[in-house]
Design a protein around this nucleic acid. Structure first.
Length: 255
DNA sequence: ATGCCTCAGCTCCTGAGA
């Protein structure tokens, strides 16, 4: 099975690109983030016509997540149970026995800000939710836009960006705490080219200069780890006209 | 230069993203 995650930065704008990409990359599950549309505007018919089932959790202007899958997702849960949140950031469902959590982690803006504090609380709540889900679903994939880099290798300018948002020790602590639940970063299971990123700033020719960050991740449970065949970041869509600032990440798991 | 793009919306500027 192939699993992919893609922050599309407005599904209304990016729908044709998503459909094109799915046609060339017929993955089994695609997690989308930053839909930036309300539930009634979700283009369910377009995905149905493309042979995909959809579950979604939209929001006006900001956030919004979805799971697009070849076979319908079961046991769908929206956001983090027990964590009061007015933003639509998480959608969970089971596809072919694999529990899939698609998540749009908070940006956090800047260390010390209210939004950073919210990010920390959200990360603590997410970890509890993932731990609960792992207890009943040994086959689990946690994927999405994490808005956190693991270490310097994920950052185009580690010195210049040290301790800035996405690169702080506090954020990385939470990322390691997710790993400590028994999850593995599928990207690092394989030899990867240096300076491999998943996001590039729209400004200042960020993509052309490969000034990016690796902040979109696919973490897999310990039962899935030995079954992971590949993990690739597809820079193709970033070369489109009017691209998302993020590229899709794709993992192939023999399950 | 708290900017440089891009997107949404109470749209001709502002907030947010990362």
């Amino acid at each position: 099975m192939k699993f992919a995650t893609w922050n599309v930065n407005s599904l209304s704008v990016r729908l044709p690109q998503v459909l094109d990409w799915l046609q060339s990359n017929p993955v089994d599950v695609l997690a989308l983030q930053e839909l930036k549309l309300t539930d009634e505007k979700f283009p369910v018919d377009a995905f149905t016509a493309a042979g995909y089932s959809s579950v979604w959790f939209g929001q006006k202007t900001y956030n919004g997540v979805a799971l697009i899958s070849r076979t319908p997702a079961a046991g769908v849960v929206k956001n983090i149970p027990g964590f009061d949140d007015d933003m639509s950031r998480v959608i969970t469902g089971t596809v072919h026995g694999v529990r899939v959590i698609g998540a749009y982690f908070p940006n956090g803006q800047a260390p010390g800000s209210d939004k950073f504090e919210y990010k920390m609380e959200w990360l603590t709540a997410l970890r509890r939710w993932v731990k609960e889900e792992l207890a009943t679903h040994p086959h689990l994939v946690l994927m999405g836009d994490y808005n956190i880099t693991f270490d310097d290798a994920d950052v185009w300018d580690p010195e210049g960006l040290r301790d800035t948002i996405h690169c702080t020790e506090e954020e990385r602590y939470h990322l390691r705490a997710l790993i400590a639940l028994g999850l593995t970063d599928s990207h690092r299971l394989f030899e990867q080219p240096p300076r491999t990123f998943s996001w590039w700033d729209y400004r200042d020719f960020g993509f052309r200069r490969n000034r990016g960050l690796r902040i979109d991740h696919i973490l897999v449970s310990s039962a899935l780890k030995p079954l992971v065949q590949s993990c690739e970041i597809d820079k193709g869509p970033r070369k489109n006209e009017r691209p998302s600032d993020h590229a899709p990440v794709v993992v192939d798991i023999a399950v």
